[in-house]
Simulated scan of single mutants.
Amino acid sequence: RLAGSRRRGGRSTVLVAVRTAQHPVDLRCSFLGRVFTADGTPLPRVLIGEYRGNDRGVVGEFDIPSAAQPRFVERDRVAPGLRHLQGAVRWGETRFVSQSDLLHPGALWTDRDGSWRRHPVPLPAGCEDLALDPEAGVLWTLGEHPWRRVVRGIPFSALDLPG
């Protein structure tokens, strides 16, 4: 796959990216998020999710490959029933996903008991990934639209998380 090219003094250099391995995750991998215990300990797991224009996107939770287990192992899969999923993280038993809405503010959704609820805290327009920062006690997200690129931190206290 052609990744880019450069021109120097009449000569062109082509940069090529080559896929050397394909992962066995059967999701359309659009975003990646971390998993933490309720006390903020990172688990050797990731959430991998699908961006879809319809409400059939899913988020899977996978063990991170290690020397003892060299493949991703799926532990859980949820289908929030939301369009335009952009990011996902888990803190304890609470899952968070971000949902974009073109140039309108994005939405943060939470799931603690199998039912997804829209959180009142709005996300930036074009919201993307989510990242939990246990040290700072903040959930981070960002907006991707040109001239509207913002980074936003939401304190854990606004999310009913300890911190």
Rank of each mutant, 00 (worst) to 15 (best):
L2A: 00
S5D: 00
S5P: 06
R7I: 13
G9I: 00
G9H: 02
R11F: 03
R11T: 05
S12L: 03
L15R: 12
V16T: 13
V16L: 11
V18P: 03
V18G: 02
Q22S: 00
H23E: 02
P24N: 12
V25S: 07
D26K: 04
R28I: 06
R28L: 12
L32S: 08
G33T: 09
R34P: 02
V35G: 02
T37C: 07
T37W: 01
D39A: 11
P42R: 10
Y51I: 09
R56C: 14
V59Q: 05
G60S: 10
E61M: 11
F62N: 01
D63C: 11
I64G: 11
P65M: 00
A67V: 02
A68V: 14
Q69M: 07
V73P: 15
A79N: 00
G81N: 06
G81E: 02
A88S: 14
V89T: 03
R90P: 07
T94E: 02
T94C: 09
F96M: 13
L102F: 14
L103D: 03
P105R: 04
G106M: 13
T110N: 02
D111M: 15
S115L: 04
S115P: 02
S115H: 03
W116L: 00
R118E: 15
P120Y: 01
P122Y: 12
P124H: 04
A125R: 14
C127D: 02
C127Y: 04
A131I: 04
A131H: 09
L132G: 07
P134T: 06
E135G: 03
G137W: 07
V138P: 09
V138Q: 04
T141W: 07
L142E: 11
L142P: 03
E144G: 10
H145E: 01
H145V: 04
W147Y: 00
V150I: 12
R152N: 01
L159G: 05
L159R: 12
L161E: 02
L161A: 10
G163N: 08
